[in-house]
């Protein structure tokens, strides 16, 4: 098993972790964290799988480079929307998550 494959499998684990966090955490800032971890998992899978033979592959590397920059743009926009919600409702969670109070809070 090559080390690139180890990173690809880690990527799969990170993706799943982030997905569970995205669904379970009611706080929007935590959802954004989980979303970023999910993205990092996808990037690791892309590059890890392409390089599992051992040779570096510039094509997925360039795609991931683009992806990282787009991810921070999405994060910033999500944070702006979450802040807007905080200013309007006084809390940073979606209105549907009513039972969220007993969960981890600030």
């Amino acid at each position: 098993m090559s080390s690139a494959l180890v990173y690809a499998l880690t990527g799969a684990a990170l993706f799943v972790l982030g997905m569970a966090g995205l669904i379970l955490q009611p706080h929007l800032l935590r959802k954004i964290l989980a979303f970023n971890i999910m993205g990092s998992g996808i990037f690791l899978m892309l590059v890890g799988v392409a390089q599992r033979a051992g040779t570096p592959d510039p094509v997925p590397q360039a795609m991931v480079l683009t992806g990282i920059v787009v991810a921070i743009a999405a994060t910033a926009l999500a944070l702006a929307l979450a802040r807007q919600l905080l200013d309007m409702n006084g809390e940073m969670r979606l209105p549907e998550e009513k039972t969220g109070k007993d969960r981890l809070d600030v």
Partner: peptide, 11 residues
């Protein structure tokens, strides 16, 4: 660090 280990210094 992981990217550096994956031969991807750009990333």
């Amino acid at each position: 660090l992981a990217w550096a280990r994956l031969d991807a210094p750009d990333i």
